[in-house]
Design a protein around this nucleic acid. Structure first.
Lengths: 237, 237, 237, 237
DNA sequence: TATGAATGAGTGTTCATTCAT
DNA sequence: CATGAATGAACACTCATTCAT
């Protein structure tokens, strides 16, 4: 079982010799990364329109001028931050090596990993939410993001293929394809994080409360398997 | 079957005697409503932080000063707009009179109605998304919103009760309660709208394309019923 | 003979009751004019690119925000200032009522008036110089400026016509037309002001020094009359 | 007759051995000249205040740091560019060897050469215009520029002397001196270029259109000779 | 009830210039 | 000789909000 251990990797660890938090001088990669991390924080909290370049500069030890030096403008920085969170999402999927697991276990692992990632990295969810609310204007035409996500759906596609070949996954025109499966899993995992605040405010119920975590995970896995497994197939490997 | 016919009601038709589109003179209620509608448009497109009071004034034929006269400040206007979309959502649920339908049909109708509403009123989804991304700061403590939503979950609760009493809905500690059911249905219906833009941009797949509408609705209803119905129960009334 | 008495009209004298220099409150026209005058000063000294909106605000008692309120942006203000100096130039020509003078006297008066105006209003010359150096980008398509200037050339055209009809001005294909005459007069009057600084710096000679004024005026008038008058015509009326 | 063939000399051809366009390595003089030419372009298009050091660096293949290495600061570079265009102007006058021509022909040649040069090198006109608009602040005290220009007026002075000695040029207190003659010729030649843009924009008339070139040249030469020649003197040698 | 005028603090961005290597 | 990295001050422009009438 996957444990919710997705935390932001310490990308600033470029030169482990220097231990300081702030990029002091002459370490461009560290400076760049520090800006990027600050941008992720700011944009995930306030969105593209609400995010302030000044605020990002203040979160860093560098100056505002450096932001423009490295990223050109606010949108360039925003896109770079968006790419970063998408890349991490993709890496978290790659890390579980779906192709090495037998289909049912792979699917179960994938569902849990998706839930875990979104729970552990709420800034991913927030950034994607903001971006959607603005009609994905900033994302439009960024090929790297398309590739990242398509790679993920391809993984799911291979998984489905193997399951069908093994006779454990449903087949035929009525069975969901990889994209539909991705949509379904994402809906469950994403909504829990994206709508947490209003849900809590309105219902006094925290969807991310660990007390509900196991129940939610079990229900989600079962629900997905119900949709995919051929009736009567064994759920445990 | 519910058809997707949720469009924004023509709230400006306060005094049908006057036919003009713009609130000319001496009709405070119409002026107020025009501001509110403009605010809903602006805030749902750009969020609270991104939304501009000037832009709202320009969308209306009234002046900026009136906004402050009627709503106090930007946040007051934002909250009023949020209340408006929530109220409509609740009204759309009330309109289907769940209590008058037998449980299975009521559940099916509720699922479809939820899907339809969110599809027809994307500004609801966008405003809720924005609000969540900001941690529901603006919503905090607004009792009216809590009441609206709790009324909805209460409806679902009565529905579940009736189904269990009739022996068609699952019971016991493992069966989902009203809030969990609401979360599940919302996840499916909300995500389809909230993440439409990035989904389309990344996968060239429009989740709201009518071509996929029927399949999605059928799968969603079946999926929910699978979770609620006692095994072997008749799905059609 | 025309005396060099073209000074900037006191356009701020809107409400003669209030004598203060600064537009205090609630006198929009005065505020607007104060901004415009400050803009003329700033832009004529530093050009469009070199001129600073902040500096213009500081020259006024109003704030920078008001500049944008009245003129939209820097370019809008610049164009308004340019229109203002062009308009004054035209008015100074209108003030001498060329049509009421007999041709030779009218021509002499026009030449002197042109020289006087450019001498008295160096900010006109500087603004036009700057605008030319930038390729007249900002002027392009501003119809009001075209009309102002064409009105002036039309005046010169009527003057030439009358002189030819009276047999005192040269005629035929070799005689200069109104536009060529305007170019010639402008060259003399404009260059004296536009190139004053480098001339003084390089030759220690101030073209605008009153000591040379009479000589310059006499030579200029004679030179122009030489070009226009039929040989042997009386130069004095 | 002088033909308008003043084009910017290919100053980059310092070391003809290397054929490359860009100053690659180990050719400091070429690097310096490339920067200078880029500066002339930039400053003549946008002025001292409007010109950007970054833009100059981008016009060259060298880096911004080199600009500071070779020229100290922005103003140093600006002055160097100004000196360059003034030097070329002076060289174009020297090239016609006024002292070797008889006075009337020399004067005619000088007028045409002046017209040709300003027409061929509009960046000279623009830079001088900008510099004047700023009150010649940057030029102040640059002795080299004074020498260049005084040498030119001295040439004209010798020319006048020879003409008077030969009895073909007017003499006496009423006759123009060398500086006045320079001013007159410059006015005609300079204005045609300096005010081309607004003239074209306002009157739809391009003063530099080749169609008007011959007429303008003939009139200018005649006009100058009218001022200088003793009445009745032969215009052709 | 309504409105044009006014404001100060901030908004993204660019400037000429210098540093460390 | 040459370079990428860094800087602080300034840049044009916009924000939500309030005032006087």
């Amino acid at each position: 079982m996957t444990s919710p251990s997705h935390t932001r990797p310490d990308r600033s660890r470029v030169d482990p010799a220097e231990g300081g938090a702030a990029p002091r001088r002459r370490d461009p990669e560290r400076t760049r990364q520090a800006i990027l991390d600050a941008a992720e924080d700011e944009f995930s909290e306030r969105g593209f329109l609400g995010g302030r370049v000044d605020a990002i500069a203040e979160r860093t030890s560098t100056t505002k001028r450096m932001i423009y030096y490295y990223f050109g403008d606010k949108q360039g920085l925003y896109i770079a931050a968006l790419e970063q969170v998408y890349r991490e999402m993709r890496q978290s999927e790659r890390a579980i090596h779906l192709d090495d697991l037998e289909p049912v276990e792979a699917l179960r692992t994938f569902v849990l990993s998706t839930i875990d990632f979104q729970e552990a990295r709420p800034s991913f969810v927030r950034m994607v939410s903001f971006e959607n609310s603005l009609g994905a204007q900033n994302i439009a035409g960024i090929e790297s993001l398309r590739e990242l996500n398509r790679g993920l759906v391809d993984s799911v596609g291979r998984l489905l293929q193997r399951g069908r070949a093994a006779g454990v996954f449903r087949d035929g025109p009525d069975a969901p394809d990889a994209l539909e499966l991705h949509q379904l899993i994402s809906s469950l995992a994403f909504y829990r994080v994206s709508n947490r605040a209003t849900f809590r405010e309105i219902f006094d119920h925290d969807m991310l409360d660990p007390a509900h975590g196991e129940t939610f995970r079990r229900r989600a896995v079962d629900l997905i398997l119900d949709q995919i497994l051929v009736p009567g197939a064994a759920r445990r490997s």
